[in-house]
Design a protein around this nucleic acid. Structure first.
Lengths: 224, 224
DNA sequence: CAAAGTTTGATTGTCGACAATAAATAAATT
DNA sequence: AATTTATTTATTGTCGACAATCAAACTTTG
């Protein structure tokens, strides 16, 4: 694969490969648990191993790859237990983010969030089966709220690390959940609490929302 | 500076430099906000730029360095607002960790934790002025509890990222706090709750403990 | 035949050099 | 003289090659 040769300002080859690899890993194009061959990948992107390793090390920092000295990089393996760990951490962090969002979000940000929800609702109404878009839209919603919290650390931990892992799990385990309608309703209530600047309620609703998702996952685990 | 030339198994040169640089950054030997010159550092450690960059990219993943394309790495700058952000995130994550610890810690782990607290208490009794050790010991305490939670994600986020940032702040801003005696007492109560397997109380106490530390920081900020 | 040891092959770790970009200095123009 | 433009210098990005380590195939030995 040829990386775009047009010299974009401030965007390095390693940046491009990093983003592309991240997408391929998240979407399951590169399988979980599989080992990455540096010579092979470098040849694929037509770059040197140096710049490839630059991209790989950043993917490790994002939690998508694991590295062992003298052995190499592997895509992180997804255990159900680790997925539940992520949900529990999200419950804690996003509850906090939602409380902060209720205090800090501007009216314009809230309007954008409402608009996002409306678009997702239309999608869901139109094409009933496409839970795919709904699930991706769910993360968009959470993404906006975390951004609205204004807490840079939360933004880094959630938007730049955990959310990619969550998306990875969804692609891996399939994402057709029966929670679409209910999730939409929950999102609506959360926005209302944010608009009312009721941080306490916003936190509770968000925690409950994520907790319900976790239980939904647990239920489906047991049936397997 | 010469890196140890004895070929340790599974430990690469980049590993050694990574650990050493991390310590130098945390302890303020390399100033916050300062730019890192790759040629200079490579010469200092007597290694090539490639292995140095390997170490630097990992430090970026730890949140200690920031990188801009074509410009280079800088040590992260510490604003008081960001420090407070860390405390708020810790309050959330460590509260959760403490609740899990109350459910999961083995009796041996609890004994070790008690022993740790006893040692710290003796240090404090003996040398009154050495708040230095007390503060480092405080993080040891928190470290043990997070490890005892058994949640690998929490361990990664707290023990491998945030705690190094916290230590960095303490070195930077000085760490002589008047909370030594009170903190010891709070630690004692937290252990008791863990031993009683009272997760709910353990979480509340831990959150209160960290919240008090944060307020202590805020108070000292205002006096500056 | 099984298990230990050896050899071969491939992969990662490390290196130094060149190319592309940014920073600093010098020159030129208004 | 101040600002803009050119030129020079230094730093980062990228490359290919060699050394060290690991994995696998083969041989040897009990």
């Amino acid at each position: 694969m040829q990386i775009s040769t047009t010299t974009s300002p401030g965007i390095t080859r390693a940046d491009t490969v990093f983003t592309d690899l991240r997408q391929r890993i998240v979407e399951g194009d590169i399988l979980t648990g599989s080992k990455l061959s540096e010579p092979e990948l470098a040849k694929y992107y037509d770059i040197s191993r140096s710049t490839l390793r630059d991209a790989l090390s950043r993917l490790e920092g994002s939690g998508l790859l694991q590295r062992k000295a003298n052995i190499g990089y592997r895509v992180v393996t997804l255990s159900t237990e680790q997925l539940l760990e992520i949900f529990r951490v999200r419950e804690s962090l996003e509850g906090m983010a939602c409380r902060l969002a209720a205090q800090n979000m501007t009216s314009k940000q809230i309007e954008d969030l409402k608009h996002l929800l409306e678009v997702h609702n239309q999608y869901e109404s139109l094409q009933q089966g496409e839970a795919y878009i709904q699930e991706e839209g769910d993360l968009d919603f959470h993404f906006c709220i975390v951004m609205g919290s204004g807490n840079k650390l939360l933004i880094r931990l959630l938007c730049e690390e955990l959310y990619f892992l969550v998306r990875m799990y969804r692609y891996q385990f399939g994402m057709a959940s029966p929670r679409a309608k209910r999730a939409f309703s929950e999102h609506h209530h959360i926005i209302q609490a944010i608009e009312d600047q009721d941080g306490e309620l916003a936190e509770i609703l968000m925690r409950r929302h994520i907790s319900a998702s976790r239980k939904n996952v647990e239920k489906r685990m047991n049936t397997l």
